[in-house]
Computed example of a mutant assay.
Amino acid sequence: MLDPTDPVVPAAPSSAEVAGIVPHADIPLAGVIGWPVAHSRSPRLHRHWLDRYGINGHYVPLPVRPEHLAAVLRSLTQAGFVGANVTIPHKEAVLALADVVTDRAALMGAANTLIFRPDGRIHADNTDGYGFISNLKQYAPDWAAERGPAAVIGAGGAARAVVASLLEAGVPELRIANRTRIRAEQIKAEFGAKIVVYDWAHFGNMLDGARTVINATSLGMDGRPPLRLPLDALAAGTLVTDLVYTPLRTTFLAEAEARGARIVDGLGMLLHQAAPGFERWFGPRPEVDAAARAAVLA
């Protein structure tokens, strides 16, 4: 597993212009790779941290079509980039392109953080689970996974990170429902006996007795239909969180809060998952605080 304190040395400078920035040996470059990627808030966050710590570096959006991913990754290692975040739809594909994959990235079946070594080797890691748990601990400090079952909605890459982190945190039972049941069954097959799969049509039953409920789908995001599922069995005081952070207060969170649930929005997960990558690429461990949150929301 990669050591977050392991120094990252920029690759040799190149005359190529990447995203309009001319690489320089003393100016580390990083970015976020996705398709599309213009909506990403990561450049705002990293710009805030670069300015805050007085680092002469850049973090840029990198729109990359799936068929160009392999070629772009290799070109970035030769163009002064020290690493990149990875978002939809490339999180799973980068595993096959990386030279080294951490145990947790392999377990989750996806990577969101890449480190480019001076020799051109690509290291892939996943900090989504770390970001998810850190967000809950920051905004619900009395939350404890072992207090009762967790219910996860969705079975994609983000859900896998949530499942892995909750199991590691000590949740006694993890319930999961997905529109395509086979994807949820695959998670059960990989993560073990604590996983209980529910049919999408029986979602409401999954909430009975659950102490933590997570929307790990993109439903409710700006431009997507809202996540509308029956919450009749949701107990007051249950912690409910949504990985969606645009908008911050999704319909799902609003309806859960109206039933007495404690809610945590998804923005903190974005902030916390970004911190280890920033440290590996640029040096300082950045602080996830109100100023970082405000910079992303600006």
Results as ranks from 00 to 15, higher is better:
I176K: 01
D119W: 07
A144H: 02
G209H: 00
R183P: 02
G120K: 06
F191S: 12
F116R: 00
I133S: 09
M108R: 12
P141N: 14
E173F: 02
A169F: 11
V94W: 01
F191H: 10
V171D: 03
E146Q: 14
V94A: 01
I133K: 06
P172G: 06
V101N: 04
A169W: 08
I176Q: 00
V171C: 12
D208I: 03
A110S: 14
A193T: 12
E190A: 12
W200A: 15
R147L: 08
I115L: 11
R117T: 07
T127H: 11
S165C: 07
H123W: 06
S218I: 10
G131C: 09
F116M: 12
A151L: 05
G192S: 14
A150T: 03
R147S: 08
L174I: 03
F116W: 09
L166S: 10
R117Y: 13
S165E: 14
V101E: 00
A184S: 08
A93D: 05
A159P: 08
M206K: 05
A124Y: 02
N112A: 04
A144T: 04
I187E: 05
A145F: 00
A111H: 09
E173C: 03
G154E: 01
R160C: 11
I133Q: 08
A193M: 07
R211H: 07
F191M: 15
Y130S: 09
E146R: 10
W200C: 07
R175G: 01
N215C: 10
V213I: 11
G170N: 08
Q186W: 11
G192T: 13
D103E: 14
F203Y: 15
G170H: 10
L97Y: 06
Q186V: 12
V197E: 01
N215T: 06
E190S: 13
H123M: 05
D142K: 11
L136C: 10
G157D: 07
R175P: 02
A144N: 03
A210N: 03
D208Q: 11
G148Y: 07
R147C: 04
G170S: 11
A151N: 06
T127D: 08
V94E: 01
I195L: 14
W143N: 05
G156D: 06
A105K: 06
G148W: 14
A159F: 15
A105E: 06
G170V: 13
E173T: 00
T127V: 07
V213P: 01
V196I: 13
D199F: 01
R117K: 14
D222F: 10
D125L: 04
R179Q: 14
G131Q: 05
A184V: 13
V152Y: 09
Q186H: 10
P141Q: 13
S134T: 13
K194S: 11
G220C: 03
A106W: 05
A93Q: 12
T113L: 10
G209Y: 02
R179G: 12
V100F: 02
T212M: 04
L97V: 03
A158M: 02
I153M: 13
A158Q: 00
A159S: 15
V162P: 00
E173S: 00
P172N: 09
T127F: 07
N112H: 02
V163P: 05
N178H: 13
N112D: 08
G157E: 03
T113Q: 09
R147T: 13
D119G: 07
G156A: 10
A161P: 04
R211F: 03
E146A: 15
R211T: 11
G220V: 04
R104S: 14
A210R: 02
